[in-house]
């Protein structure tokens, strides 16, 4: 009897030590341990996509019921607005032509010239603290491999910063969102001589969908309404990706250092598709 108990305790201690080792090893960027999940990811991926489709349909059905009632009322209002909008179309068409010309002038298309942008479907959502990354359906088979010195910026359809790829296995990758407390990125105020600072997620702001700017130089000008973009320092993220808007500037609890609360441009609640930026040079 005592032998069985001893064996159980040994098994438990052994398993615990093994798992602690796995945790430490898998927390290293580019750890080969992440490939252990590849076979299961490959099996799960089609199941998850089917499940996501079914969830979307069920959610869509109930939403369509609610929407139907609203639509009837809106339809009446829209008919009235329609006439007014028709007159604006001609003006907007002209504005659109001007926008295209300006876009070309500012070379927005060439801004990320050295990068390939690949679309990815969001497969899972976060499930709580420490299990708060989301999975996308691209991995090493698509040419994305995270190492200690290489990761990938993740943006939305409007090229606004979402986060970065944390790890990849054969068919899927995990994304650390911008508002996550473990995320940090070098940023600058989007002006010609804008000050450099760090933007990071915090536990208290994450729930509100906000993040924090700190390490702000003492003489730097920063005020609500300022727009922050990635600075490109460090080489992980290309310079100029829009991050968010400063909504308030405050003094840190721990001293005289200034901090700013940032409202990211990207929305994190209803993410279904994201885009991963892959530099052409390794």
């Amino acid at each position: 009897m005592r032998g069985i108990a001893r064996n159980r305790i040994f098994l438990l201690v052994f398993t615990t030590l093994l798992l602690v080792t796995v945790i430490l090893l898998s927390s290293l960027p580019g750890s080969p341990l992440h490939f252990l999940t590849s076979p299961i990811s490959a099996v799960l991926e089609p199941v998850q996509k089917t499940l996501l489709g079914a969830t979307d349909k069920v959610t869509g059905f109930f939403e369509s019921l609610r929407e139907g009632m609203r639509l009837r009322e809106e339809n009446r209002t829209l008919r009235e607005e329609n006439a007014e909008l028709r007159s604006q179309i001609d003006q907007l068409a002209e504005a659109g032509r001007q926008y295209e010309a300006l876009k070309e002038a500012f070379a927005l298309k060439e801004q990320y010239a050295g990068y390939t942008i690949v679309g990815a479907r969001v497969l899972t959502r976060e499930i709580g603290q420490w299990f708060d990354v989301f999975r996308i359906d691209i991995g090493t088979a698509d040419g994305f491999s995270v190492t200690e010195t290489r990761s990938y910026a993740v943006v939305d359809a409007q090229s606004r910063l979402i986060g970065r790829v944390l790890s990849t296995d054969l068919v899927s990758g995990k994304v650390l969102p911008l508002i996550h407390e473990g995320f940090s990125v070098s940023a600058k105020v989007n002006t010609p001589d804008g000050a450099l600072m760090r933007v990071r997620g915090t536990l208290d702001l994450k729930d509100q969908g906000l993040c924090l700017a700190d390490q702000i130089p003492s003489g730097a000008s920063l005020k609500p309404g300022d727009i922050l973009v990635t600075s490109g320092v460090g080489g992980l993220f290309p310079a100029g990706i829009p991050i968010g808007t400063v909504i308030s500037v405050r003094t840190a609890d721990t001293g005289s250092e200034r901090q700013a609360v940032i409202e990211p441009f990207a929305g994190f609640d209803q993410l279904t598709t994201v885009f991963v930026m892959k530099g052409e040079t390794p």
Partner: peptide
């Protein structure tokens, strides 16, 4: 606990092993 923890780590974990340890 181990198996459910593995799925948890696989689907949403920052690292592998933590979910397995906790749920075990």
């Amino acid at each position: 606990g181990l198996a459910a923890g593995f799925m948890r780590d696989l689907l949403a974990g920052r690292t592998l092993g933590l979910g397995m340890l906790l749920l075990m």
